[in-house]
Amino acid sequence: MKFLRTRWLEVTALLVVGAAVVRGVTVAADVTQGDVQRIMYVHVPAAWLAFLAFGVTVVGSVAWLRSGKPHWDRLAASSAEIGVVFTGLAIVAGMIWARPVWGQFWTWEPRLVTTALLFFIYLGYLALRRAVIDPVERARRSAIMGIVAFIQIPIVYQSVNWWRSLHQTSSRNSIDAPLRVTLWLAVLAFTFAYAVMLRRRLELSLLEAALELRQLEGSQAVAGAAVVAPSLEKAGHHG
């Protein structure tokens, strides 16, 4: 019982993901595409999760700039990492689907191009985080980058969309009701999975922050507080 109390989120996520997978492989096949369409039940939720994750990152970024509370920065960082993983997985699953259906792994479809760029944009964001050592500096710089990236995403998408529409119109086909239920179940399942991952990643961030602080204290004790330059940060010279 204690296990259930502490791990209820994990257990629920596992159950819902399991149900979604079972439903995904057993539901009647799509009329036009056949069984390959089942890939959509993991591909679409993975892509959705990536967008959700990057949305949470920008919320964390803005909140950090407003409040300066470290947990907002940890939220932004954790969510971005999950988002990058899922963008990568969504791209791979999409390519596996495209191979039999479109006859090739890659096409210059707007959503595909945008998703690939998203992957690299947030890879850059994570690289920036790794590059800055000071925790406050890291939070500030990555918050700015998180916001810049997020504002640019709709423009990137729109530009690719326009560029594509010049050459050909993208074909959209609607899906049947039972299939839509399956898709929504899968989206719900992946959102639970996101919650589990985010909680774990936040736990890790907290530990890493504590570790950083301890190491910083250790290094300062050797040098002595007297050699640390006075902080001009909030002095308001530039008001």
Binding site: V17, V21, D35, V36, I39, H43, V92, P100
Partner: peptide
């Protein structure tokens, strides 16, 4: 085959 590959990669990746 394709469906299995996609599911294994996504669920396995998670």
């Amino acid at each position: 085959w394709y469906v299995t590959a996609a599911y294994v990669i996504i669920l396995g990746g998670m």
